[in-house]
Design a protein around this nucleic acid. Structure first.
Lengths: 359, 359
DNA sequence: ATTAATTGGTTAAACGTTTAAGCAGTTCTT
DNA sequence: AAGAACTGCTTAAACGTTTAACCAATTAAT
């Protein structure tokens, strides 16, 4: 079949026309402008309650907008304004009560100031975290609030955020070297609170299943544990200190090891609730009684700590406050863009929730 | 102080210049073009490996892009292309293992096809759900995958998604009336599986704490329960059927009521794991033994069901498959935009995980 | 009665990309 | 040798908003 070039061009035009017709192109500001015989600029201004537009016109614009089911195009306005009003949030896992609660509170604060959030999860993976950051930067977020993955050591992708000139706020899992805002609890002091409590209950041989020391917060908990023992003039026994990835499974394994010792510890302070749960199971399987034979303290105040038997003493991390403050910190950075980012730590005191496992 | 209009204009120009300089404006395609003395169009094509650009130019473009730390602007490309490559995901809660796992699997599938996801949580609130939908539409997502909030009865905001012509996929909590794709498990049949199991263990007086019947999935579980009893020629006792919001607390309350009956039931089938946990607590507090005095079955296979004592028999909802299939359904809708959306149900069989509470 | 200020808009450019169309220059056909 | 086809770009318009600059008409100030 031979078809002239002209025919081809016409066919293309036609197909475009049909496409537009079928997809019944979204209504834009121009459609409103046309139907009211005013300029698109006037419509835009009317929508934003510009004082230079008459009340009558504003009303008409809003009426027609509703009639035509107009929805503003974020891409266009964000592109033009150079501001997306989107905040990226990176968490290691969403299915933890702590992170879920932090995010919820952040969202509440940010929504009030006209920001929406995009949640991404790193699944504790360094690669996924890098990808998340790329996605967020690509989406042109106005800032990023993040809690670092366990695996993360190399910080170059976080530097990338800083180099873009948008605010970066870290919470819970932070890193001093980045020199950015940080919101979290006082991990060092939390360990002191826990040890004080256990000592007051008569414990003398307290074990610690901690997270990896390369992660700052876990290192701080470890330091707090060691210093608190010193304060109470208890001997420091290296075999009572174990690093763990703090999953249930690893909590079980490490507790098994601790119960092989002779004498066994009279208390275990676990730096994460899930691992504490694993410890609880193993202790009971061995026929030992909690808290009589051995006391147990977790960290994080996950809901299940008050649901298992016995209920587990734990540290509440004040997730509401952390979420709110991280969001507010972001907002203040946005409002003062000239102020250079510096290491600005906002530290909360944590609360010890005493339950059956250490009574 | 008197300042001429001209001076004012000059000042404004200056301030804009300074602003650009201070914010060291992000590098764009034009910067690359200038530095190579080619057109911006050529750069764009080189980036996308257009066959009409020479290998030499492509290489040069990519090199300079890296040198200048170029990051494409999603807003601009999405605006131009009319496609954001973003998928909105709405879940009732992120801190549930089921939803978290579904989302994770969705993300995996979608990322492979070049899509990124934006997660929003409705917190089971109707209003928040509407807001989420508005945000997502405003962000120009290419589609929405959602699980409905408990509160939701009015479906007009979901109709709004449909009217935009972008794909809407529902999972777990769906609604026939919307006439869109749905991915979930066979709730009706799940009840049959549970009742079959309990009957085989000798139960004759099986109670059911279900969700609100206005939610389709809970209604289906209820129907399945009733029909399964009939099948086994067990009497239907209305006092054994209770509707609940399925929180731990309500699980406790409703179980208290059931244990007031005479005779008490010999099994309780609870339509949600959290409520089942509440039931477990109350039963034990009353001094009754599980499974000897009374058997217990939950729904959802939340991790804690295998962590409490006794471990709780539950239904696994196949979250991985649901996530993957919801994503794939979205992709196939995108690839065949002309096909009209219809009620297209993809139903999985659920798996019963038998544990101590019903042995 | 001028000039100045206010009102209620309009025009046009810009944000950063993509893409249809065009166009030299070279190479291949026949 | 003349046209066809290919190569490797360039030009310019478009996506939907926002906004600086401008302007005509009205009202206020002196």
């Amino acid at each position: 079949m031979i078809v002239s070039v002209k025919t081809l061009v016409l066919l293309k035009r036609l197909s475009k026309y049909i496409k537009n017709y079928v997809n019944k192109k979204r209504t834009t500001i121009k459609d409103i402008a046309n139907s009211l015989n005013i300029s698109a600029a006037a419509v835009s201004k009317a929508m934003h309650d510009d004082p230079r537009i008459s009340a009558k016109t504003k009303e008409a614009v809003k009426r027609v907008a509703k009639e035509l089911n107009y929805q503003p195009n974020h891409l266009a306005s964000a592109l033009r304004k150079g501001k997306s009003n989107l905040v990226g949030v990176i968490v290691p896992k969403t299915n933890s009560n702590f992170f879920s609660s932090v995010v919820q509170n952040m969202e509440e604060v940010l929504n009030k100031s006209g920001y929406n959030i995009i949640i991404t999860q790193s699944n504790e993976s360094f690669k996924k975290e890098c990808d998340s950051i790329d996605t967020l930067l690509y989406t042109q977020v106005d800032g990023i609030i993040a809690s670092m993955a366990n695996e993360t050591i190399d910080l170059s992708h976080y530097e990338k955020i800083k180099s873009k000139g948008i605010p970066l706020i870290l919470f819970d899992r932070g890193e001093n070297d980045l020199n950015v805002d940080y919101v979290g609890i006082d991990d060092y002091n939390s360990s002191h609170i826990i040890i004080n409590h256990l000592v007051s209950k008569g414990c003398k041989r307290i074990a610690h299943i901690g997270g990896f020391r390369r992660t700052r917060i876990f290192n701080n908990r470890m330091r707090g544990y060691i210093d608190a023992l010193k304060k109470h003039q208890l001997p420091l026994d290296e075999s009572l200190i174990i690093e763990s990835n703090l999953t249930i499974k690893d909590g079980r394994t490490k507790t098994h090891a601790l119960l092989e010792l002779d004498p066994i510890p009279d208390a275990i302070y676990v730096a994460g609730d899930y691992a504490a749960l694993g410890a609880l199971q193993v202790i009971q399987e061995k026929g030992l009684k909690i808290p009589n034979d051995i006391k147990l303290v977790g960290f994080g105040n996950e809901p299940f700590t008050s649901l298992v038997h016995p209920t587990i003493t734990s540290i509440d991390q004040n997730s509401q406050e952390i979420g709110k403050l991280a969001a507010e910190t972001f907002l203040s950075r946005i409002e003062n863009p000239t102020v250079k980012q510096t290491l600005n730590k906002i530290i909360f005191d944590a609360k010890l929730i005493v339950r059956e496992s250490s009574e």
